[in-house]
Simulated scan of single mutants.
Amino acid sequence: MPVVDDWLADTRTSYDAVVAGYADLVRGSVAGHRYLRAALALFADGVRDAGGGPVVDIGCGPGHITAHLRALGLDAFGVDLSPGMVDRARRDHPGLRFEVGSMTDLDLPDASVAGVLAWQSLIHVPDERVAGVLGHFHRVLRPGGPLQLLFHVGDGTRLKTSGYGGHPMKVHVHRRPPDRVAGWLRDAGFEVEAQLLLDPGGEAPQAFLCARRES
C-alpha cells in the first residue's frame, strides 16, 4: 500500500472536518464578486476558443465553482481530495459530476480535458511538489487548452490550526509571488498569457494566472 504524504492526509482530514462551515462561507462568493465572475467568463471563453470539451475544477470543494462553470455553458466536473467535500458537492448540485481525487496523482487520461481550473487549491501544496502537480495539469490538458490558477500572494507559509466555525485543522497555507508561480508554469510547458492581482494593497491579496498548454 502506498504511503500517503503527511501534508496530504492532514489536508484531507482538515477539510472533511469543516465541510458545513466552508460551504456556508463560499456560498454566493462568485455572485458577489465581479472580478471572480469575470475571470470565470474569461476561462469559459478560452475553452470555447480552443474547441470546447470537458473541463475539470480541481480542488472543487462544495462544488460552487463547478456549478458556475456549468451555468456558463461548460461541461464541467469537479475533483477534490476531501470525500466530505465531494459528498456535499453532490448533495448541493445533483446531476453534476464530482469525484474524490488528488492533484498529486490525477486520475484522468492524457489530453482528456479542454480546460483546467484550480482556484485556491495549490495553496496547500509544498513547493517541492508543485512541479509534479503542474505536470499532471499539463498531461491531462489538451494542447492549446487554458489553465487558470487563483492563489494567495506573498512569500511565506503559515500553519492553519482552526477555521470555518472553529473546527480544528492542520494545513499549511503557502503564499507565493506571482512571478514564481509563472516560472513554474513555464517550466511545466505552459505559456503564461495574463496575470491579475486582487486587492494588491490589502491584507490578503490574491492573484490569477491565465495560461495555456503549448501545442
Score class of each variant (00 low, 15 high):
H93L: 11
Q206T: 02
H172N: 14
G145S: 05
C210P: 03
L185S: 08
R97D: 15
L150E: 07
A17E: 05
E203S: 14
R213D: 02
R176S: 10
G59C: 02
A114L: 00
R180K: 10
A67D: 15
F190L: 05
A131Q: 11
F137T: 03
R158K: 13
G52F: 02
G201R: 00
D179I: 10
G63W: 06
Y164W: 15
S102L: 10
L96H: 15
A31T: 06
D6E: 15
R97F: 08
G189D: 10
L81W: 01
G132C: 07
P205D: 01
V171Y: 10
H172P: 07
A89L: 03
H174Q: 14
V79W: 01
R88K: 14
F190Q: 03
P143G: 05
H64R: 06
V19P: 00
E193R: 14
R97L: 12
R129M: 06
H136E: 15
A188Q: 08
D110S: 13
S14I: 05
G52I: 01
D187R: 15
L150R: 10
G145F: 00
R70V: 13
D49A: 15
A9V: 02
E99P: 03
A9N: 08
F137Q: 04
I123Y: 12
I58T: 06
E193S: 04
G144H: 05
G189K: 12
Q148F: 08
L122T: 07
V116D: 09
E99V: 15
S215L: 15
G135K: 09
F98S: 06
T66E: 02
R213V: 09
P83V: 06
L134N: 07
M1K: 14
G46K: 08
G115H: 00
H68S: 10
V55A: 01
Q120K: 14
P143K: 08
A9W: 04
L185V: 04
G61P: 01
G52P: 00
P143Y: 07
G61N: 05
P168K: 11
S102M: 11
A31P: 07
H124G: 10
A31C: 06
R176H: 08
R186M: 03
P177C: 07
R97P: 00
D105E: 15
Y164T: 09
M103C: 06
A204R: 11
D155Q: 10
I65Y: 02
G101F: 03
V19C: 02
